[in-house]
Design a protein around this nucleic acid. Sequence first.
DNA 1: GGGCCGATTGTT
DNA 2: ACAATCGGCCCG
Length: 189
Amino acid sequence: MLDLTKVYSQNFFSRPTLAVAPELLGTILCRKLPDGTILHAPIVEVEAYTQDDPACHAAKGLTKRCEVMFGPAGYAYVYFIYGMYHCLNVVTEANGVAGAVLIRAIGTKGGEGPGKLCRHWQISSIHNGTNLMATESDLWIAKGHKLLASEIGISPRIGISKAQERMWRFFIKSNQYLSLKEKRSTKTQ
DNA sequence: GGGCCGATTGTT
DNA sequence: ACAATCGGCCCG
């Protein structure tokens, strides 16, 4: 049963990004709003980004924007994109190595991508660096049920212009709440 | 300081 | 296919 106080220890996140990404599917994203309301929903679609990956913000080294990605795992990396949206990532890898998993969709908002997810859950730059392993945070990840490998779909990542051949997007096949682009590309694959 | 680009999304 | 919209990043 669902217990939002059950969180992961850092060694869960402090592993290779490609190992962590699929295991984040089915875990529970939790958000405590300013008014005290707690939102929670399973993560259903993610993408992996690593330091040696041309599509990663950290590909060209440490900058102000992506410095959180180089820090300890289990913290949030939130960036502002296209002058309009924020995107939420979970930092992975050992301290000093950049890596993150983009949360593309959760199991509540149908047909919405990472930008609208952050808008609806009021996740913004102030959450950059938030500890996702502590229920005292206003944003954290709780343990969910473990998925079978057969339940997970794999495909190229969405919206990138580099390293498009890498099959680094993972999603729950049976999920009805995938983003629109996700559904489109799933249907045609 | 200038110019280009982008891990998005909604409209044409 | 393209516009909206602006911070980050690279260059000079």
